[in-house]
Write a protein that binds this DNA or RNA. Structure first.
Lengths: 346, 346
DNA sequence: CTGAAAGCGCTAACAC
DNA sequence: GTGTTAGCGCTTTCAG
């Protein structure tokens, strides 16, 4: 615990008999400092084991070199993977990453944004909480000149950069695939909260039905459930008990799909012969269970990289100030055993 | 993009006709400021929409209010869950959390620590990279007076606080369970890198064998593999091909165990009748696949909370300066179908 | 190309 | 209890 004063640019200046401002310039590679002095300064810096005091530099320039990230849950595979992408890209550009989670609660999200603003983050990347569609607090940050970019989820009516998935069109492709495989009646397992992502995933199925001249009203029943394994089990057991007619379970995420599979197998049904089951998001588990589950792969990592790159660009060139840009990343259909009657070579 | 100057304590002072230092004291709830002025100051602060400039305060106090976290991979379920725990506990204590990943590479880890030291983090929580057993860079941080605490993994020979799992004794319990179930010959799938965690997990099995008077040398064959699903598949296929004798696969993580299960099922073997398979870490998937896999549950979230709480305590009271404290968290055996011949009520 | 000097916003002695 | 004063370490005008 050696609490010795650390070396400053003044120490370097004194040692070299020059002025501290020259040292500052030299270390920042200012163009009009001679190469000779730059070299001297750098050498002395390493010799004295100089480390810049970022805090001081931050105060002076009122830049923190930090970007804030807010996600609902850090430990969700999708989000932690996005974060991994963010972290890589941010570090490459010389930024630190400050992380916090909203737990899908509006209050916590507001508090997080406040803390980040106080910490003078230079920008915020957020996938907003499902609770509440009101983006007041986000708008405020924007008004303070701090760019806030959305990824995966967003609020309508806030003009800013967004990086999203083309869930709707991939959901349509998924729907078409299911129809082709002979699916006729869909059981839709959707989330309890109203969110852009769930709406899109449902809309895609509707698109698919309409594109082949079928009717949503008679071919789809839906249940709002907690999108968990247990939620999926319960929902399917309910539907079976009630004798509802369906031959496809379309769950809005893989966990619920896994639950559906378990419930169906337990009831002695065959997948995909009797029932097809599909999910969304390509959780690692969906590939490993039996039968493996057809799903939609979203490149979370790419999403993190992309939205970070956009933010860094914006920070580099404040004036470019695009009002609102929406980037849609391609998700891809991953067809597996649970929906593929063709090749039953299991 | 309103780039107006934000209000400072001086503005508040001027508006109230008092001195800025009084404002500072009032806002920091200094004991010898009268309640009356405190109230006035606070009201004026909210009225003027004052937000403290953390950067300035940081410089002055040379505290950043930030703790750094370094993990091998953010997106690993175990680590993202630890991080979730860290985040919660840190925020509760008023700290921000700076995150970075080492990708199990020593170089990156060193760089991360440097960056964090430059950012003046007040403490670092790290699960060190598998690459390299040399903790030079960590020792340096400690020597600079920045506490570095280990979680999950650690380096020998560095005196500091650690929060670990009792992997060895749970592995012993796991071993005893397997012996009780009639296991006789173990195929050990271990990681390629030399790391405390893998050593402990293997040592536990040895303990179990010895505790019942059996012999490691004749009852255990082991393979160093990449601890992935593919690694597990390949390893088991190899062993089967070579005709090695074993009736238990003990994988050092769940992914490899899942691979082992897949390879055995594909070869037409029955689990657990012919072969038992066990893993480690309780990945979500291990419960969901068929057969469900016996594993060891490590409370990652608790680990994050615990190590953070220790760090916060240390930061609060610099002088307490415990040289080295090791906390062992209890992991628990989770017995599932893949190792349980008794109740084959599948 | 380099030096002098001011100050970012806040805190902490030290006075009174 | 409150005011005065002096910086924290760095950047950035403005001179020369």
């Amino acid at each position: 615990m050696t609490k010795q004063k650390s070396t400053t640019i003044h120490d370097i200046a004194d040692a070299l008999g020059i002025n501290s401002s020259t040292v500052s310039r030299a270390l920042n590679d200012h163009p009009k400092v001679s190469e000779k002095t730059k070299k001297k300064v750098r050498e002395m810096a390493t010799q004295l084991n100089y480390r810049p005091n970022v805090l001081a530099s931050n105060l002076r320039t009122s830049r923190s070199g930090t970007i804030g990230v807010i996600v609902p849950f850090i430990s969700r595979y999708f989000f932690s993977t996005v974060i991994a992408g963010i972290e890589e890209e941010a570090h490459k550009a010389g930024y630190n990453v400050l992380i916090s989670q909203s737990k899908d609660r509006l209050e916590l999200e507001k508090k997080n944004i406040k803390t980040m603003m106080d910490s003078r983050v230079e920008g915020i990347l957020i996938s907003p909480a499902l609770e509440g569609t009101d983006g007041q607090h986000i708008q405020e940050a924007l008004d303070h000149g701090v760019p806030v970019f959305f990824f995966d989820r967003y609020h309508e009516g806030i003009e800013t950069t967004k990086v999203l998935m083309n869930d709707r069109s991939t959901a349509k492709a998924l729907g078409q695939h299911l129809l082709q495989e002979g699916g006729t009646h869909f059981l839709l397992l959707t989330g309890q909260m109203d969110s852009s992502i769930y709406r899109d995933r449902a809309a895609g199925i509707k698109d698919a039905l309409e594109s082949t001249g079928r009717d949503w009203a008679t071919q789809v029943t839906s249940q709002k459930i907690p999108l968990t394994v247990e939620g999926g089990i319960e929902a399917v057991e309910n539907s079976l008990k009630k004798g509802e007619v369906f031959d496809v379970v379309y769950a809005m995420n893989d966990l619920a799909a896994i639950g559906a599979v378990q419930a169906l197998l337990k009831a002695g049904k065959k997948i995909p012969e009797d029932y097809m089951v599909v999910g969304f998001s390509n959780e690692p588990t969906s590939e490993l269970i039996h039968p493996s589950i057809t799903t939609v792969n979203q490149s979370a990592w790419t999403m993190g990289k992309t939205v970070t790159r956009k933010l860094v660009e914006q920070l580099k060139d404040k004036e470019l100030s695009v009002a609102s840009e929406t980037t849609i990343l391609k998700s891809e259909l991953v067809i597996r055993t649970s929906s593929s009657k063709r090749n039953l070579e299991r």
